[in-house]
C-alpha cells in the first residue's frame, strides 16, 4: 500500500502481488452504521428466538435452568462477543449486514483479513462504543483517512465499499450531424492523449445538459479546435467535440493507421492465450 501522500479523497490504492495498483473506496460511517444496525437486529432476533425455543423445549421437560444455561453459553456469549469475528473470518471479511450494505473488511495492505484480526477488531468494539453511541470510534475514524475506528487501527484493517460497476460499451454518438461532421474532419487528425481524455469525459457527461449549455461548455476547447481544423463558424461546437471523440474512440470501419498502441495490445494478449483456451463451462 502506498503511503497516503497523494490521497485526496476516500480512494485508497492497493498494490497487488502482481504489482498492479487498483483502488478501493473506503466506507464511511454512513455506510457502516446501517450495516451495524442490520447486524444488531439480526443478533437480537436470533438471540430472542433461541432463548424462546430453548426455554420452551427445556421447560417442557422440567429443566428450564439448564436451557437458560445452554442459551447463555451457546448463543448469548458468542452473539455478544464473537458474532462479527466468526462471520468476518468465514465470509471473507463480511457479516450479513456488511454483505447487504456491500462493504467488506480488508487489511490496510488490501489483503483479506485473518481470523485474529477479525476476532480482535470486533472485541475492541467495546472501546469504540465509549462513552456512548460509538463516539470514540467516530472521533478515531474522523482523524485518519481510512475511516478506521480504534479496533481497526489496532488490527490494521479497514472497511471498503464494493461498488458494482457494469461493463458498458464505449459511448457512441449517433446523431446524423455528428456523423456528417466526423467525415469532414481531415483524416490525418488524431487527438492527442490529453485531449482524448477530455473528450471522453465530455461525451460521458453531456447527456446531463441542455443543448445550449453543452455549447457553452464545449466552447473552451471547441473554439481553438474549430479554427485549427478550418471549419466554418457555424459549426456546432458540441457536435464538433462528439465527432472528434468518435474519431478517437470508435472504429468507423476504415483501415487503421498503424500506431505503436496496436502492437502493444497484441503483445498483451499472447501470454494468456494458452490457458485461456480452456472453456469455462467444463466444471459444471
Amino acid at each position: 500500500m502506498e503511503t497516503d501522500g497523494h490521497q485526496l479523497d476516500t480512494r485508497v490504492r492497493v498494490v497487488t502481488p502482481e504489482n498492479i495498483a487498483f483502488q478501493y473506496r473506503v466506507a464511511g460511517p454512513f455506510r457502516r452504521l446501517p450495516a451495524y444496525l442490520i447486524d444488531l437486529a439480526l443478533r437480537i432476533v436470533v438471540g430472542a428466538a433461541t432463548l424462546f425455543g430453548l426455554s420452551f423445549v427445556f421447560g417442557v421437560i422440567g429443566l428450564g435452568n439448564l436451557g437458560l444455561g445452554l442459551w447463555l453459553v451457546l448463543f448469548f456469549f458468542p452473539l455478544t462477543w464473537f458474532y462479527g469475528g466468526v462471520f468476518e473470518t468465514f465470509w471473507n471479511g463480511q457479516t450479513p449486514g456488511k454483505r447487504i450494505m456491500r462493504i467488506r473488511v480488508l487489511s490496510v495492505e488490501g489483503q483479506a483479513i485473518n481470523a485474529s484480526q477479525a476476532v480482535l477488531r470486533n472485541i475492541l468494539r467495546v472501546v469504540d462504543a465509549l462513552p456512548s453511541f460509538y463516539l470514540l470510534g467516530l472521533v478515531s475514524a474522523a482523524m485518519n483517512d481510512r475511516f478506521q475506528r480504534l479496533g481497526d487501527l489496532a488490527c490494521g484493517t479497514m472497511v471498503v465499499c464494493e461498488e458494482p460497476h457494469r461493463l458498458r460499451d464505449v459511448a457512441r454518438v449517433n446523431e446524423p450531424e455528428v456523423l456528417r461532421l466526423a467525415a469532414a474532419i481531415p483524416a490525418g487528425f488524431q487527438p492527442d492523449r490529453t485531449l482524448a481524455r477530455a473528450l471522453a469525459v465530455y461525451v460521458g457527461r453531456r447527456g446531463h445538459f441542455m443543448p445550449s449549455r453543452r455549447v457553452q461548455i464545449a466552447r473552451y476547447v471547441g473554439v481553438p479546435l474549430r479554427e485549427r481544423l478550418g471549419l466554418p463558424q457555424s459549426t456546432n461546437l458540441d457536435h464538433l467535440l462528439c465527432a472528434l471523440y468518435s474519431r478517437a474512440f470508435v472504429t468507423d470501419g476504415e483501415p487503421e493507421s498503424t500506431s505503436s498502441l496496436t502492437a502493444e495490445v497484441a503483445d498483451g494478449d499472447s501470454p494468456f492465450a494458452a490457458v485461456a483456451a480452456i472453456p469455462v463451462g467444463e466444471a459444471r
Binding site: N65, G69, W71, L72, V73, F77
Partner: peptide, 13 residues
C-alpha cells in the same frame, strides 16, 4: 444438575 448447568452458563457469559 439442571440448576448447576444454568449457573455455569451464567458464570461463563
Amino acid at each position: 444438575p439442571a440448576f448447576r448447568g444454568g449457573m455455569m452458563g451464567l458464570y461463563i457469559a
